[in-house]
Design a binder for these strands. Structure first.
Lengths: 330, 330
DNA sequence: TTCTAGTGAGAAACCGGTTTCTCACATCGT
DNA sequence: ACGATGTGAGAAACCGGTTTCTCACTAGAA
């Protein structure tokens, strides 16, 4: 079970390791016959270069670190899958580190990754207006931020919440809804503000009235959606279109409406946010919702990091990636 | 931003790199004064050894691979967190590879990890009766299986589904329930069979009748739970205790019962499985459910792998880890 | 024919550590 | 006073690659 080294290949091909290395990597000057022969021998022997040794001289480990504070969350895994998918053909692997909200743990992980000579770091989280509990600004490697706050001069990749909101509200308007409200999370979240602003703007652009009361702030829970419906239906002025801040709220809203025997989507249309399939598909009826394309976001984060690692120029600042409306039954 | 090497430390301390290495690692023969001095110098200079170089000679990379087919799932992340938590103090990092159900992708990832000289692999999945789409039996590194099927002579770590079932059903019995049924997933799943068997056994041991109809097989969805309740309540013989195969089914059951104005937990008690907090806590009332302690499972998988890597003896076969009943309002 | 330029290949240094082996020197017993 | 033993430290080899630099040889130009 001994690994085949480049020495074995060189010996078997009757050349020096220098020539073998050059032949296999397509660098330096080697005649095409020699190159072909060495490649053949390497293939026959099942030679696989030791990435550690290679990294040592190349000063590139083909490894990136993914830092997240979203241990149980639903955001990290799709982002991770996207990163990994976008980088695997370049031979890049991903260290995933879940650091909860623990600064010491974060530091430990960052140090460990640095010691292992990672080429760069992608920081990701669950809130775009909070940064991870560790300072990544003066590291010897580039850092890309995804779904979490980073410094202004870094690349930060986020979903386009405004555009997603326009998609959602536009859909409601096209469905003929006129009394549209927005039930969302705590106003302390930046995305909540952003979506609320886009919400008002879209209504206004469509010439629809937008009373102050049209946005209800609460928590990110089903319970809040349920409760909001109870409040709304205790008054006379009832909406016919509801745009929710996430799928859990939407789920609570739909359940609340169904308990009142309100026909979805004929009497009231509901649109969620996140496209968390496990929630959206099991809601009765299945939720129409906004997908943030997290996998694509991860992929772009990976590509951006790789360009930075290669010293290529990358536009810094916030990148906004479009969301997609997924139309289902609500 | 140049990294400090052991040469810098040695030079600054006026010793050879051999002595510096021995002093810093506590190996070889070095006088305690010299050792102290070198350590001091290393600390002053902020020396951090290059893990790549170290791995090259030590033939230990302090890196393990985690292979999973559970891209969006809720199982992988807790397991991962447990592994990482249990290994980080030993300086071990984790490569996470989401391989979906794609054999080629799996092979690519495994090869990449092997090239990077990982010390071992943990294979994890979403079904204990399915193996990953890649053969891990003849690898040059040890493999531990968690929540997925592995060969008989390997270490496979699983939750103790039977014990979890006993906890759940025992709880119902202690609550005075006498007509207990089990609503669960497809009978093609091994865990479904296992839990059903433990279910019957527990009832029998308590001297309760166990009609064949007491186990209802369906899908892992809320919809199925909802539907099962509709079927049950269209007959006369109604249960007063329901043990569900997962929290989503339980969620459907609870919703179905609430729609029928049945008082939970006074008229009927419901127990779920998984303790998927996002579901269990938002159910009204919150779900009493079985927690599989996935984080602990991950931790143990990590420890077991590390022992194998160190060449220590580890008992092979299936390890069953106890589940914990989490009592909430249902 | 001689000088120059170009080509293919290898020796050796290097990346940054670890480890073996050797050796000078101090200590001890007799 | 002398050999046996023990101790601290360094030279050098090594891990498995990559890369620079040198060199022999060939071909073309003058």
């Amino acid at each position: 079970m001994e690994r085949v080294t480049i020495y074995d290949v060189a010996a078997a091909a009757g050349v020096s390791t220098a020539t073998a290395s050059k032949a296999l990597n397509g660098t330096g000057r080697v005649s095409s016959e020699t190159r072909a022969k060495i490649k053949q021998v390497a293939a026959d022997l099942g030679f696989r270069p030791n990435a550690l040794a290679r990294s040592l001289t190349r000063k590139r480990s083909f490894t990136v670190g993914l830092l997240t504070d979203d241990t149980y969350g639903r955001f990290t895994l799709p982002v991770m899958a996207g990163i990994s998918e976008g980088l695997i053909d370049q031979g890049v692997s991903v260290f995933l580190c879940a650091i909860e909200n623990n600064p010491e743990l974060a530091k430990t992980h960052v140090d460990a990754m640095l010691d292992k000579q990672i080429d760069g770091i992608i920081a990701t989280g669950k809130r775009v207006d909070r940064s991870l509990p560790v300072d990544l600004t003066h590291l010897p490697v580039p850092v890309v931020y995804a779904l979490t706050a980073g410094p202004d001069d870094a690349v930060t990749i986020l979903p386009d919440d405004s555009q997603g909101t326009r998609e959602a509200v536009g859909h409601l308007i096209r469905k003929g809804r006129r009394r549209i409200i927005h039930i969302t999370g705590p106003s302390t979240f930046q995305v909540v503000e952003e979506r609320a602003a886009a919400f008002f703007q879209t209504l206004q652009a469509a010439g629809l009235s937008s009373p102050q009361a049209a946005v209800l702030y609460g928590s990110w829970s089903e319970r809040w959606g349920h409760e909001a419906v109870a409040n709304l239906w205790s008054h006379d002025e009832r909406p016919d279109g509801i745009f929710c801040g996430n799928d859990q709220i939407a789920r609570g809203v739909v359940d609340g409406l169904r308990e009142r025997n309100i026909d979805i989507p004929n009497d009231v249309s509901v649109v969620g946010f996140d496209n968390w399939e496990i929630v959206a598909e099991q809601t009765r009826p299945p939720l129409t919702t906004v997908d943030m394309n997290l996998k694509e976001l991860g992929r772009q984060a990976g590509q951006a990091l790789l360009r930075l690692v290669n010293g290529e120029a990358v536009e810094t600042g916030m990148w906004r990636l479009p969301c997609t409306l997924v139309v289902r039954g609500s």
